[in-house]
Write a protein that binds this DNA or RNA. Structure first.
Lengths: 210, 210
DNA sequence: CCGCGCCTTGTTCGATTGAATAATATGTGG
DNA sequence: CCACATATTATTCAATCGAACAAGGCGCGG
């Protein structure tokens, strides 16, 4: 089975390195495309450790995915705590800023989601059951509560709007390598992130009433 | 080499079946994930024919991709011909409607693009050189010409707006299997396409001045 | 009806895959 | 310093991959 108890701090280190390497490799190459040897190489460890720590490639994938979702959740929670917004517009703006920053910092997230989401199958089913549904309903509830606020997004069906927003926010960073081949620039530079955020706020929330 | 000349109508049929099967398989499974045997099975032909007609998996991929881009181009050309729009808003609305319909009808297109675009590499370089750059500059030119029209999209940097729009339009259909696992519904049904189109027009062009 | 060229099949090759297993290293508690 | 659980390495296996090749089928021109 899996190792009984951590021996010392080195185990967490090796496991953690493998999970980070797996997250990057899976998001770049897809589940089948990322070989366990490639993941082990990126982590600087031996391929046999995949089965030692995780038992199977599938389990390694699930634990790596859980990390990305935990980061997203942590970011969202921290965001709503630190500065409670008063108006619908301020709340929505905070959410968009937080989501854009996360999408730029962790493009692995949307890459994993789009790779599985276009395929369906058991891994996507697992994602929906364990992570996606909760997130989707939280966003939908927020959008429904924003109805009648006069914002452009307030009149749109929450389900459709959810996918529009996710696509609009993540695509630029999801396609960062394409963007770089096309323009020679890096979309994760702060200036691009800022321009992207401003554009999204203009589109979804309308011009600021300055 | 490749076969010299078509023998009769059956060749085009076999080749065409393989190209369509390849387009679907590549978009679902990615380049590495789609085996030549899987493609041949979907087309109902023998695996050896891949090398006979195309010489390599790479060439088959390029020819399949070219089909998707040709359809996009044909749709865009036909759109601008049939009903010349007068105002910037009408032109933009036509473009959005056409792009949404295409994204819903051919999700393979965005699936191929996102699979390669997140990876970079020689295949994406080929896509940029042969297909993407022309499309990107055509859209950018259109967006630049819409400046000062008063539309929400008219004040946004064309490069950023390009990726926002592509993501916003395609994500719903790109993630159709996820959408179905999540909601039990099919986003390619006409009612969803219409709701999606209306939402995008509201966001990018503002409320209609009815 | 035969012969030649396009089309298709079947088989095979080396390389790579996920996984299992045996052997070895490490290091801490007794 | 020994013993034993944990951690790591090395090796191996069946399955599958893209590709190459030999062989045969098919159809039309002569």
């Amino acid at each position: 089975m899996s190792p009984a108890i951590a021996h010392d701090k080195d185990e967490a280190s090796t496991r953690e390195k493998m999970l980070q390497a797996a997250l990057e490799a899976f998001s770049e190459l897809g589940f089948d495309g990322a070989s366990t040897r490639e993941i082990a190489n990126r982590a600087g460890v031996n391929q046999g450790l995949v089965n030692y720590y995780f038992g199977s490639k599938e389990t390694l994938w699930r634990e790596a995915v859980a990390i990305a979702f935990a980061e997203l959740r942590a970011g969202a929670d921290g965001l709503l705590d630190q500065a409670p917004a008063e108006t619908d517009r301020e709340r929505a703006e905070q959410l968009i800023r937080g989501f854009v920053d996360f999408a730029a910092r962790r493009p692995e997230f949307s890459r994993l989601m789009t790779d599985e989401g276009k395929r369906g199958g058991k891994r996507m089913q697992w994602l929906v059951d364990h992570h996606v549904r909760f997130l989707f309903e939280a966003v939908s509830t927020f959008l429904k509560n924003s109805r009648g606020s006069g914002l452009p997004l307030s009149e749109i069906d929450p389900t459709v709007l959810h996918y529009i927003m996710v696509g609009a926010v993540t695509h630029l960073f999801h396609q960062a390598p394409e963007f770089e081949l096309l323009t020679g620039l890096d979309p994760t530079e702060p200036e691009w992130i800022e321009a992207h955020t401003d554009a999204l706020i203009t589109l979804f929330l309308g011009k600021e009433s300055s």
